[in-house]
Design a protein around this nucleic acid. Structure first.
Lengths: 239, 239
DNA sequence: CGGTTCCTTGAGATTAATCAAAGAATGTGG
DNA sequence: CCACATTCTTTGATTAATCTCAAGGAACCG
């Protein structure tokens, strides 16, 4: 919950080899031609983050934006007295940071080892303004993100603890390619699941063991999960 | 909570007089030149909605998008068994509907008398793609909307009923130009406040009367509100 | 004025949070 | 590879917050 002081993210010197970037096709850069890509490449640098390291802090001036190359990161906000809410999880090819805005409304923190391709916000804003394709791609992404955020608002505002946990498990299984019987390694700690679901950690834990007792899942320990009864989970998640 | 069947929205014949549109400067159309504006004008029509009328239904195909000209509308989703969550409130010059997407993830319903300038979604998508300024303006708006949605996620996930109601009152006071001592007419019913805050209607009601007992506000009846102690409310809202 | 809808209030049930402590899992240095 | 420290997870008991159910009062609408 509490963000410990973290060491400085390490910056790789070999910045802008965009042409053979692993997310070239799916990230917003996919909209650029060779010339634009070359120009953008000169502006960016690659940053490596260890789990727990924070790239952007809530409330700070919005200085960086970028694309996730590898790993998962959380976007989170905190109340005055330290209660945390995770407001989004990002995956490779997702965009992070707040372009066209003075400050960052949430922190961005690595959940796993992660690599991110970052740009100075001001430079990126200018570049985007002269490359309509980037803005168009970013618009589509942002609209999707907004849909997701609003769906999550329904979960946070109107669903019971049981429904919330079932929804999250299904979402993780889908996003991480889980299948019945196949063990899946959860990328989130119980506390992070709680912070995402707006619940206490104990409630998440209890709900998961109840699901196990009811034969919906198996928990072989060590943050691993086996799906047993997808239809059952779906019935619960739907309310 | 339950959406009653509503009559068909009435469509005004005098569609496209964009040049003297009341939200011309602040809506996304502000980015267009005279020619683009003329072209867009031919595509749009104006729709009048009475309070409670729904323009777009959750789950339906995304057929319409548009700008709010006058009034307030709510964006809402519903669980399988009918629990409602309001995921956004829109005001004049705000954009509504889901461009570049197959279906609409939430309903759009008038809270007050409202007028909206609407476009067929497909036609708008095409227009936007050939007018970068529109996409740029829409992107900025969508980013702001996403920030708001995420801030609300913190409220829904981590704040107490008391904090939620205080936050909402402050937001309404600010958005509607309230000031200490000046009576303000709330545009939301208690049920709608509850649906926005993820609370039961009784909890909202009780919290408001408690705020009145504590001298933070006065409730002269009839959905009217007088602010008495802004600092007090802010102290509560912050947590 | 009578009907309808909206709002408030009370009592009791229920859910989830909190407090507390024991039990895994993970990592570290010997 | 093991013993120990640390962190994460589970479980239990209790408390607190909010919801639900129920009913009376206020506002609003022909």
């Amino acid at each position: 919950m509490l963000q410990l002081a973290t060491s400085r993210p390490s910056v790789a010197p070999d910045a802008g080899r965009c042409a053979d970037c692993e997310v070239r096709a799916s990230a917003i850069c996919g909209s650029l031609d060779a010339i634009g890509l070359e120009e953008l490449g000169r502006m960016g640098r690659k940053v490596h983050l260890r789990p727990g390291q924070t790239l952007l802090w809530e409330g700070d001036e919005s200085v960086l934006v970028g694309n996730v190359l590898e790993g998962m990161l959380k976007l989170s906000t905190v109340t005055g007295d330290g209660r945390e809410q995770i407001v989004g999880i990002v995956f490779p090819s997702d965009f992070i940071g707040r372009p066209f805005g003075k400050d960052s409304h949430h922190s961005v923190t690595a959940l796993t080892e992660a690599r991110v391709c970052v740009f100075r916000r001001g430079a990126f804003d200018g570049f985007a303004d002269s490359h309509a394709g980037i803005e168009a791609a970013l618009l589509r992404r942002t609209l999707d993100e907004l849909d997701r955020a609003r769906r999550w608002m329904l979960l946070l505002g109107r669903m019971s603890a049981t429904e919330r946990v079932a929804s999250l498990l299904l979402e993780m299984i889908d996003r991480l390619g889980g299948a019945p019987g196949k063990p899946l390694s959860l990328p989130l700690s119980r506390q992070q699941m709680a912070d995402l679901l707006g619940l206490a950690i104990e409630t998440v834990s209890r709900t998961m063991t109840r699901f196990e007792r009811e034969g919906l899942i198996t928990l072989p320990g060590g943050r691993r999960l086996v799906l047993r009864d997808r239809a059952g989970l779906e019935r619960i998640a739907t309310g």
